[in-house]
């Protein structure tokens, strides 16, 4: 769901004296009004910030002993970093399998053979329409129950495996749609040119469409990987030891500092996601400049495939 901030092309941004869609370049009166508005807004925001901080300090949330654990090396080496490792491991493994699934089902859905494209489409739409969490629950509880009815005993599925399976199925089907729209975004003339010089369908796909589509869809793929990373936090619910479990279960369990701990953990997530987002934006700028691909670059916003029923109505945002 994450959309990268690619819309603020400098010209669009309502900077001080430039006109925007909504506001004309301000004259003297408008400037005065804007300055007054700025002042009022600043006061209101400061009051809101004060109320928040007052509430927190009234509940003794700024006491040193609640924040002190985060200055200790052992809290980082024993809890936060292993937690972060767990998050990155699950995200990394799931990302690899999701990309694989995305390629297979994305290409499958583009197939000319109905017996391949229809089932591929059904799988993709099914997994995109249901919540990730119930897939994770089923990945954990399903296999033992199913094997049980065959009279076999299966050890319970580990949290890691359940999380990876769920993340793979969900993000894999979203990626499949990204791949499909990436291939579809290439002008028809490209494949026609390929056919006209006698290439086969597979050759056109592999040598003409896929290389160009990869450039175009990279930003959208990275955006989806940010979503995947954020979704690993669901591991908390099935007791997988990830960053969120470390920050909201283990550390507060030891020090009773749930609010400071939640804030620190949130900051870590935000930094990682913003870094990944920057990679996406950079890739997008690069592929926009590049003349190697004839496809329109899919941004995080446009690249996200529309949900079922939305058809091709995705607007050019």
């Amino acid at each position: 769901m994450t959309m990268t901030d690619t819309q603020d092309a400098p010209a669009r941004r309502p900077t001080k004296n430039k006109p925007s869609v909504l506001f004309d370049a301000p004259g003297p009166r408008a400037r005065l009004r804007n300055n007054i508005l700025t002042l009022v807004a600043a006061v209101v925001l400061l009051v809101v910030a004060y109320l928040l901080i007052a509430r927190l300090s009234q509940q003794h949330q700024f006491e040193g002993k609640l924040w002190e654990p985060f200055t200790r090396k052992i809290v980082w080496t024993r809890q936060i970093l292993p937690g972060l490792g767990g998050t990155l491991k699950a995200a990394g493994v799931a990302a690899v399998f999701a990309l694989l699934m995305g390629v297979i089902f994305g290409l499958g859905r583009l197939s000319e053979h109905k017996w391949i494209s229809v089932p591929s489409g059904a799988v993709v739409e099914f997994f995109r329409a249901i919540p990730l969490l119930i897939m994770i629950f089923f990945a954990q509880a399903g296999p033992p129950a199913i094997m049980d009815s065959f009279g076999r005993v299966l050890p319970p599925v580990s949290g890691f495996l359940a999380l990876v399976i769920g993340l793979t199925l969900y993000n894999g089907s979203v990626l499949a749609e990204i791949f499909r729209s990436g291939i579809n975004s290439i002008p028809k003339g490209q494949s026609e040119a390929g056919y006209s010089i006698g290439m086969r369908r597979s050759g056109v796909m592999l040598r003409i469409l896929v290389p160009q589509a990869i450039t175009a869809m990279m930003p959208a793929v990275i955006s989806q990987l940010v979503v995947l990373l954020k979704d690993t936090a669901l591991g908390y619910i099935i007791a997988y030891p990830d960053l969120l479990s470390a920050g909201l279960r283990v550390i507060p369990g030891n020090f009773g500092n749930i609010i400071p701990s939640a804030i620190v953990i949130a900051v870590i997530y935000i930094i990682i996601n913003i870094l990944l987002g920057l990679v996406a934006t950079w890739l997008e700028k690069r592929s926009r400049r590049s003349r190697k691909s004839s496809a329109r670059t899919l941004t995080g916003g446009t690249g996200l495939p529309p949900a079922v029923g939305m058809g091709s109505a995705a607007p050019t945002i």
Partner: peptide, 10 residues
């Protein structure tokens, strides 16, 4: 950029 799980737990 914050996981929803974290926000809800908070």
């Amino acid at each position: 950029n914050t996981p929803l799980t974290l926000i809800l737990l908070f």
